[in-house]
Design a protein around this nucleic acid. Structure first.
Length: 552
RNA sequence: UGCCUGAUGGUGUAACGGUAGCACAACUGUUUUUGGUGCAGUUUGUCUUGGUUCGAAUCCAGGUCAGGCAACCA
């Protein structure tokens, strides 16, 4: 299949580089900063980088871009590794920009020696001012003319810790009038007397992104360094550093990052949702994080399929959330175990059933002929969904109502004879009679019904809790909406249903079984679920044509 | 009044000078013991104006629109 698919622009470049003999093998990298959990946008980048290597017979490094000690933590490093593995990818080397600090320092010294870098004593504000604006060239200052010897000793003193944060920076000496703002003597090193999660207190100066990323690529001999569109202006600097240092010429290519409607993708906003308690944690099933999707029941296969379908291009995009849901249903439909769970139940008594109880058999997955069957206990007192009964049925209602017939899934066809209400006027019990010859699998009744209901035997049913999730935000374009994005959080993004009953087979299933609760949706046991208290997260609903009909 | 990107149905993404295709969404029909699934089908598109060419989504020029760039973040 994927061989037939046409090449995206990056695959095009790679196949040319391979055909021309520029490279024998390609090496890509996935370079997250360990300052948060990975989200679906990272999944796109992961699938791209690892996928490219897989497709063209190369390899991929996992590199932590840990050059800002104040934001980064080991907790994030661990979660990132777990998420990449869970998605199904293996890196050939685990790297850290912080492992290159010595080398990077040497690179900086080389630049100083070539007269291409200088120590600047200006404040951040002064530097910003001196950089000019996109339409006005920047101006230099007296520090720009320091001698090589002076710069060398000042930079060494910076490293020694003789200055405080913000007192001095190392800058490249390029072109203060460049139309590209990033080339107007960019900062290379800043002083940060902060504890680093890996190097501890060994360093008090840290390289900026622009003086770490390209060099790290080069040190690892990355052939194709793929990043998102906002780094396009950085490419000139990326190339400049590599050229001045005369090191391995890694090349940077940019693609459009993933945007999705009804959610947010920025780490800053995701962090805010967690710290301010709008969601329970980074792996809250409503979060677009890999860990959240995993807990919700998404499969790695479906996420990879999604990343495949959205494609790689340079055009800005906003992908429909429903495409992700499509991919999840597509996979789950093939693998999920079918079970019956009834929520908001109403009692159904089958008045002419005098066998007491019997075991019926039901297929585990109609999509999978090898999926087998399971036993489901049947008796004269069942629970069915309250919404499957209508006292005064409308025309297109295929479910139960006075004098209406339906099939009970894997059991019998029944006919509603009467019903009783409680004092408050709610339906309390439905009375029906069944047709013994309509038994599932050996139906000789000749009866035809339009509706099939799921059910559980009241005395065999086990209580379950259902977490039903909806979109986290109620507007499509969350980032573009006016005001604080948190105002648009969907108040109904989580509904917990504690009045639900499942068939006993659920007790025999393992924690990581993927389920389809018939006519309700796909479900997956929550991390906090136990045999004593089963808790299921709804991964995604089934398509529901009746719900659509009702809206009309 | 700078520089850099980009512009193809509702949403994405192909077509590399030669029939605008695919997926999702929507809608119709059909099958079905899940109003699920499957199957068949329908609807909807090349930002604009010129130019080159037998022929332009594609090449060229101008315009329009959208996004990005002036963190001691990555």
């Amino acid at each position: 299949m994927s061989e037939e698919k046409s090449l995206n622009f990056i695959e095009e470049i790679i196949s040319q580089d391979l055909a021309s003999g520029k490279y024998e093998n390609i090496l890509t990298r996935f370079p997250p900063e360990p300052n948060g959990y990975l989200h679906i946008g990272h999944a796109k980048s992961i699938c791209l980088n690892f996928g490219l290597a897989k497709r063209f017979g190369g390899a991929t490094n996992l590199r932590f871009d840990d050059t800002n000690p104040t934001k980064e933590e080991t907790e994030y490093v661990d979660s990132i590794k777990a998420d990449v593995k869970w998605l199904g990818f293996e890196w050939v080397k685990e790297c850290y920009a912080s492992d290159y600090f010595d080398q990077l320092y040497e690179f900086a010294v080389q630049l100083i020696e070539k007269g291409l870098a200088y120590v600047d004593d200006s404040t951040a504000e002064q530097i910003a001012l001196q950089k000019g604006t996109p339409t006005v060239p920047g101006t230099g200052n007296e520090y720009r003319d320091r001698t090589v010897a002076e710069n060398l000793s000042l930079f060494a003193a910076m490293k020694e810790g003789k200055y405080n944060d913000g007192e001095k920076v190392l800058r490249a000496k390029i072109d203060l009038a460049s139309p590209n703002m990033h080339m107007r003597d960019p900062l290379l090193y800043r002083i940060k007397k902060a504890h680093h999660h890996r190097t501890g207190d060994a360093w008090c100066i840290y390289p900026m992104y622009d003086f770490a990323h390209g060099q790290s690529d080069s040190i690892e001999k990355i052939t194709h360094s793929i990043c998102t569109l906002e780094f396009i202006p950085h490419r000139a600097l990326y190339d400049w550093c590599i050229e001045q240092l005369a090191i391995f010429p890694s090349k940077q290519y940019e693609f459009a990052r993933l945007n999705m409607n009804y959610t947010v993708m920025s780490k800053r906003k995701l962090l805010q949702l967690v710290t301010e308690g709008h969601v329970s944690s980074w792996d809250d099933p409503r979060m677009p994080t890999i860990s959240g999707m995993r807990r919700r029941g998404y499969t790695p296969e479906s996420i990879r399929d999604f990343c495949d379908r959205i494609g790689i291009a340079k055009r800005e995009n906003i992908i429909d959330f429903s495409l992700l849901e499509f991919c999840v249903r597509e996979h789950l439909n093939k693998i999920a175990q079918r079970r019956m769970v009834v929520s908001n139940p109403v009692k159904l008594v089958i008045t002419n059933y005098d066998k007491g109880e019997e075991m019926l058999s039901s297929e585990n997955n109609p999509e999978d002929p090898t999926g087998g069957v399971r036993d489901v206990p049947f008796s004269n007192t069942l629970w069915i969904e309250r919404s499957d009964f209508m006292e005064e049925p409308t025309k297109k209602y295929f479910r139960l109502g006075p004098d209406l017939m339906v099939r009970l899934k894997s059991a019998y066809i029944i006919k509603c004879d009467s019903f009783e209400k409680d004092a408050a006027g709610n339906i309390e019990t439905i009375f029906a009679s069944y047709f013994p010859e309509s038994k599932s699998g050996s139906d000789t009744s000749g009866l035809h019904v339009k509706g099939t209901l799921h059910w559980v035997s009241a005395k065999h049913a086990i209580p379950v809790v259902l977490n039903e999730y909806d979109r986290l935000f109620s507007v499509e374009d969350v980032a573009g909406a006016e005001g604080d994005f948190k105002e648009y959080i969907n108040p109904n993004s989580l509904t917990t249903d504690t009045n639900a009953w499942g068939e006993p087979a659920l007790l025999n299933d393992t924690q990581d079984t993927r389920f389809q609760f018939l006519r309700k949706g796909y479900f997956y046991q929550d991390t906090k679920s136990t045999k004593e208290k089963l808790v299921f997260n709804r991964t995604v609903t089934l398509k529901d044509a009746w719900a659509k009909e009702q809206k009309k």
